[in-house]
């Protein structure tokens, strides 16, 4: 069922929904950007429709609502512990198609990897309903169509905001009552069919090609350009890596909490092991790891789709202007070169 709401009716709808849901959406934080007098847009709890930023991509991803940057997992006192309390009220998350598709990847890692379901993820995730927001085609860093994330399936509501209010489609009956008395309209969501930016992912099924790619000089570029800050992975819609920290209260080591904290494969020390050994000790190595993880390894392991959803937030947030799409295209060129060289008698590219 479709509806067309004016601004007052939109506010009324949110009021009704807020009785039963905590509503999260992209919200503007004025002057909190990396540079002076720039804003950031990130997901946060909203109360009124004018807080929702629907005409611009958020700087940080929707995943923060479900798996926040930091969270207390449990509290301990001597030999006892107690789980952190879970929020009772369900969440309605207004997110873009790429954000919603990204949740399939998050779910895969947190709930379906290695036969273990992450309790702290699961108990939040189970309480989330999605409203897909029309993105108007995104911006020049978006390549969701190339990554097949432009048409999500798992959503309860579809919203299209504009200056005149909201067009909505209810696809999950449990939301029907909230629209009682609202003007009906034959709205159905449309998803972006083509991005300005297109990415071709090279075929890496050949082990020899992968081995040659690993030592290809293309990665050395990032030793100089990448500052290993991790902005890309914090902004990534699909990255799930975290570390845990036990924090003791005051000077008493018997009392404290265990926290989950976002980690980044791009930050030096991420893969440091006992004896101080690091597997990927240069920025180029770390970039290669990330790119291959997003555009080969994940799919090779789970089979369904590449990890990257093409939301472009890593490109958008990189302070050094490293573009993930340009990097994938460079990798595609390197792979062509490697394949030609292998076909030409197997001379390994150095």
């Amino acid at each position: 069922m479709g509806y067309s709401l004016n601004p007052d009716q939109t506010a009324e709808l949110l009021n009704r929904l807020a009785e039963d849901y905590r509503i999260y959406a992209p919200k503007r934080f004025p002057k909190q950007g990396r540079y002076s007098d720039t804003d950031i847009i990130r997901y946060d709890r909203i109360q009124t429709p004018d807080e929702i930023v629907w005409d611009q991509k958020s700087d940080y991803p929707a995943k923060e609502v479900i798996s926040p940057i930091q969270q207390a997992l449990f509290y301990f006192t001597e030999d006892e512990y107690r789980e952190s309390k879970k929020a009772k009220k369900p969440v309605l998350l207004l997110a873009r198609p790429c954000d919603i598709t990204a949740q399939l990847v998050q779910e895969k890692i947190y709930a379906e990897n290695g036969g273990f379901k992450d309790l702290y993820y699961d108990r939040v995730h189970n309480k989330v309903k999605f409203a897909v927001m029309d993105c108007g085609g995104g911006d020049d860093t978006c390549f969701c169509v190339s990554m097949g994330s432009n048409k999500p399936e798992n959503y309860s509501l579809a919203f299209k905001f504009d200056e005149n209010g909201l067009k909505a489609e209810v696809s999950d009956d449990c939301f029907a009552d909230y629209f009682d008395g609202m003007p009906e309209d034959d709205f159905t969501p449309e998803f972006v069919e083509e991005n300005e930016l297109k990415v071709t992912i090279p075929d890496l099924s050949d082990r020899d090609v992968r081995l040659a790619l690993k030592s290809h000089p293309m990665w050395k570029e990032f030793d100089k350009r990448c500052i290993s800050c991790g902005s890309c992975t914090v902004a990534c819609s699909t990255c799930t890596c975290f570390t845990t920290r036990d924090i003791c209260y005051g000077d008493n080591p018997e009392v404290g909490e265990r926290r989950r904290v976002t980690a980044s494969c791009q930050v030096a020390g991420f893969d440091q092991m006992a004896g101080q050994r690091e597997i990927r000790s240069t920025a180029g190595d770390r970039m290669r790891y990330k790119i291959l993880h997003k555009f080969h390894d994940h799919k090779a392991r789970f089979g369904d789709r590449h990890m990257c959803v093409g939301c472009g937030r890593c490109t958008h947030m990189c302070p050094e202007f490293i573009s993930i799409s340009a990097t994938v295209n460079k990798m595609a060129d390197a792979v062509d070169e490697i394949k030609a060289s292998l076909a030409d008698g197997g001379n390994h590219v150095e």
């Binding site: 002057k31 990396r34 940080y60 940057i69 800050c229 902004a235």
Partner: peptide, 8 residues
Amino acid sequence: CPAGAWTR
């Protein structure tokens, strides 16, 4: 800061 943990 990669995560917006510091703001002006």
